[in-house]
Write a protein that binds this DNA or RNA. Sequence first.
DNA 1: CGAATGGTTGAGACTCCTCAATTTGCGTGG
DNA 2: CCACGCAAATTGAGGAGTCTCAACCATTCG
Lengths: 235, 235
Amino acid sequence: MVFEQSCRQCAVRGTALCAALPDADLLGLAGHGTHRRLARGETLVRAGDMAMPCANIQRGLMKICQTNPAGQEVIVGLLWPGDFVGAPFLGPAEAGHDIVALTPVTLCQFPARVMERVLTDNPAMEHALLARTMAELARARARLGSLARATALARVAGFLVETAQRSGAGDGETIAAIDLPLSRGEMADLLGLTIETVSRQMSKLKQAGVIGLPGGRRVVIQDPDALAEAAEDLI
Amino acid sequence: MVFEQSCRQCAVRGTALCAALPDADLLGLAGHGTHRRLARGETLVRAGDMAMPCANIQRGLMKICQTNPAGQEVIVGLLWPGDFVGAPFLGPAEAGHDIVALTPVTLCQFPARVMERVLTDNPAMEHALLARTMAELARARARLGSLARATALARVAGFLVETAQRSGAGDGETIAAIDLPLSRGEMADLLGLTIETVSRQMSKLKQAGVIGLPGGRRVVIQDPDALAEAAEDLI
DNA sequence: CGAATGGTTGAGACTCCTCAATTTGCGTGG
DNA sequence: CCACGCAAATTGAGGAGTCTCAACCATTCG
């Protein structure tokens, strides 16, 4: 059955929208869904596009980014498995950001009109999407609050904490190892810093014994408490 | 008729949600609505509250703010007339921010359950709210992008441009005068700067003849083009 | 092996913050 | 009407933090 391959897999992290769908509609939705794989670096949406697809991310990590007038790229958000991409009902608005795969990605894509019809027919699904969008808005605002006054060290430490949480590594209290999905440059774009500053802060945390850097993009969180404390360092 | 006094007034700036309601439901909603006035500085929602009211702002300006671990206040967003407050369908989640009146405010408040029922009964209204929330998310992300790398001058200039737009003063091309709704301290909290730096940048714009500061909180935008250019100044 | 890419480390410049003093605006009371 | 006091805003000097520019190391790939 098709949706066994597609939408059931969307139900990642228990937050997926399809969980709100009765099976009949799930089947109807799956009939319109396209499975898509994106290679690392591939672009799903480009800023300025007039058509914004709707999709559920199944595996992998994507970045939402914009390019400022000086040509620098700024990453304004990350999308993890289970997250929703798209803006149904928004009308023919111009996409404001690029959405690009940071790792190999698999997703479940639908035409916006189909998604809109399914949402209209399934209030529970629309409620879930609305609630999730509000939660995402609150998260974006929280990030705004921390970016506003946090030091470089706090930004880097905060990013490590959040990445450890979202990639499900450890419980935040014991030693855990994560593979960073971002390069130093991408971390810099995300945190509003430069590559060099990110690198220096990582080295500082390593010197202090808070993290270990065994090589590659692997990070061992040796002292989660100290890391969490560093994340609250303010100007 | 009740709703003539309440919800018709919500239809500010042509974006209000009630515009999507048929008259019969509008009447029903108005029956549950409470008109409320807030004095300057009064708090509508406090971070940590378990109940998040739903409301439409009719007149005035509110701030969404959080207090960081060091006790500093950070303003993560502003709410203008016509904006919606609340998070229907999100369940009993803790409010993450304070929402405080910056000026005298009048708003139209509803119990979350009533709002949820009206949204369920009126898909068009829920679509409108979803679209608006997505647009607000895009705006928050855009702010993230500019806060990440903009200089102090660009932050201040950008704030002036946006305030002029949202308060409907001028067309962005000719000389316009606005009354700032925020103190220097509040601007600093919003832009992630200090009071002194905000003041210095305002003085710099004045010296350059870009703006005039006739006194009080009044700002005359004498050279909108130069102001817009200053807003794009990056580190 | 050499080139290319990504990461680390160092020195100096620049921006913004901190601390402090002064000025302005405004409401109160004499 | 003016003096006073208080809060807000402005201005200055010095210092901390981050960026820029540059060189150097590590890893991967041809």
